[in-house]
């Protein structure tokens, strides 16, 4: 149970960083931390005591594996996270080239 609580604390650090920081790169970092916490939480839910990694071995015939389903889903989620981060960083680089700042309060030429 305490591991789940630590995982929630890691997620809330990412959430706080996403809400409070005004630097675009810091916001991207906060989103990345929250994503790590979610991935870790799913794998923690699928862990089984004294079990093996889900790879069938011909010589050690055991059926005592950890849950393979969350691992397969999180494998997809990690790769999608990379794609999302690449798009966010590309937009941030364009914004820096145009406005010379990462501060979201200064980026308001379209406002009003």
């Amino acid at each position: 149970m305490s591991l789940y609580a630590l995982c929630f604390i890691l997620f809330s650090i990412g959430l706080y960083c996403l809400l409070v920081k005004r630097n675009l790169v810091k916001k991207i970092i906060g989103l990345g931390i929250a994503e790590y916490a979610v991935n870790l939480f799913f794998i923690l839910l699928g862990f089984k005591e004294n079990a093996e990694a889900p790879i069938i071995d011909k010589y050690a015939a055991t059926q005592n594996f950890v849950d393979p389903l969350p691992q397969a889903l999180i494998l997809t989620s990690i790769v999608i996270g990379l794609g999302v981060m690449a798009v966010m960083v590309a937009i941030s680089v364009r914004i820096y080239e145009k406005y010379r700042t990462f501060d979201i309060r200064e980026i308001r030429r379209l406002k009003g």
């Binding site: 149970m1 591991l3 789940y4 923690l44 839910l45 699928g46 862990f47 089984k48 005591e49 950890v66 849950d67 393979p68 389903l69």
Partner: peptide, 12 residues
């Protein structure tokens, strides 16, 4: 939630 180390594994 189920306790750490004993997953439900309905589909798994």
């Amino acid at each position: 939630l189920p306790a750490f180390g004993s997953p439900i594994m309905k589909m798994g």
